[in-house]
Design a binder for these strands. Sequence first.
RNA 1: GCGCCCGUAGCUCAGUUGGAUAGAGCAACUGCCUUCUAAGCAGUGGGUCCCGAGUUCGACUCUCGGCGGGCGCGCCA
Length: 588
Amino acid sequence: MLIPILQDRLRSAVVAALPDADLSRVLIRPCTNPAHGDYETTSLMALAKERRMNPRQLAADVLARLDVQDLCEDIQISGAGFLNFRLNLAALQRAIQGAARGEHLFLTPASRPRTVVIDFSSPNVAKPLHVGHIRSTFLGDCLARIFRKLGHRVVTDNHIGDWGTQFGMLLLGWKTTLRRDALAADPFLEMERLYKEVNQRCKDEPGLRDQARAELVKLQSGDPENLAIWREMQKLSQAQFDSVYARLGVSFDVTLGESFYNPQLPGVVKELTRLGLARESDGAMAIFSDGSCPPKEDPFLVQKEGEWQPNPFLVQKSDGGFNYATTDLATLEYRLKTWAPDEILYVTGAPQQLHFRQLFATFRRWHPDTRCRLEHVWFGSILGEDGKPFKTRSGETVKLTELLEEAEERAAKIVAAKNPDLPAAEQQDIARRIGMGAIKYADLLPNRQSDYVFSWEKLLALNGNTAPYLQYAYTRTRSLQRKGAELGDLSAVTGTFVLAAPEELALVRHLINFGFTLESVIADYRPNFLCNYLYELAGRFSKFWENCPVLKAEDPAVRASRAALCEVTGRVLGEGLGLLGIETLDRM
RNA sequence: GCGCCCGUAGCUCAGUUGGAUAGAGCAACUGCCUUCUAAGCAGUGGGUCCCGAGUUCGACUCUCGGCGGGCGCGCCA
């Protein structure tokens, strides 16, 4: 909002002082320490350094050419060559006034919208969504919302695992021990039972594993009976996914599972072979290093026993079957052809980093002219409370639905204690929104690259830096609205905004950085920046709330300004929570 | 063995091209509900930013070397 304007002005001044400077590196950001002002740039020190110039002298040269009189008080050069900006009162008043009139919400939509495909969630057929899916699902959904808010075109794609080797076991189980009544009652439970049972029996009866494999081969070669069973499993699973996603408030533009790309797989391998990218190796088809980058950066090389050895990317198995590398390549090509995106994001776990490096490198060699940014938006592993990896294969997994139930129950108890007079239905609705919000926020708050320690207590905490705290701050703005409406004297601010109390100024100074925060989120794919921004906003609002009476203010102009400040804060909180996928409430 | 990631307060974690005095939550302790306000606010205590060297005007951040942990390393995804 104001940052892009200041940045443009700064760039004009820099280019006047240093005509050949790389302006993309001239940046303005909020001060890390408010004592230094509202915004700062450290770019001049970096520029001076690489040119062996005196940084303070450069800062002075730039300052002499800088025209920000309309926005800032006197600019200070400080330290080794910082430029510190302090907004003047009029600029703050204009900003908050524009927002109060509904002209903007401190953000400017992208001037050049990009098309972004986001691949996330990706559950497997016949398995319920569990804790292992929450990071991908919430991260992907949140990024999609923020890209859209900033004016970009987004395609969300749920790449469902509907064609893996698990179907061998499942088909065999289905044909031998399926219980129709159990399937009708709880499809996942029954399918899980089938899988586990066959898997267990395979350990004792060696022949069974071959039978399972045979079922898989039959399926993949188009056997009508197996296909029909597979379709039924797919349909049952999708119905379950749909209901969970509806509950989560997550939606997809397209749901194209792995099987969708099946017909294209042989062609992909044929094409890679024709181009000389893939070659036979131990009966499989694989892609090797082309030596185009240093060994250390080459995803097709690995160092073993002191030597660089091939680390190939397998696109076809020795039995002729295809694997996820093949599917991912076909998927990538389909997405480029269908949506012509500027960017494709893969929201999956850290362990898949090598896979995506190989995938992206292979694709670059396959389509060297395609300009599309490919990003693996990876996140840390989920650990148990003991710090050991949270394995999904063995041991019990916590299902997403169980997690939601627990969250709502805990929230319901608190609602009942705090607000026993509310109608039961409203209490339940409040508990639902709070429980869901708590889980989403707990998931989005940590840096995505950190490992995720699964903890009931933490996931469902309802105080401190949590969603309920933000939701509560929002309800305060609503309650003030209601009371103000009763009094009937809450009119829009007609004159100049009164911004005098430190709490008012601190609040406005934070509000205006909303857009900057959203830009930061999509630049690094890190929603936690938004969480921290909102937490800070709620904190500043609470201080304002404690110290600045609104409806009881003597001066009508102060009253109107503060009421509008509340209203705008509520809008930003509501919008911000909405972008995190978290619902707000009018009271709680 | 090699690669990726991590190591910050008692616990869980933030820390935005390297930037000024390293911040939250939880836990502990002390205050504040005849109020537009307590799912809140104010305050106290708590740190060799794993260790060591280097680059730099400046390092939690970058480089190198250790130590500790997690994950990955050819036909699962």
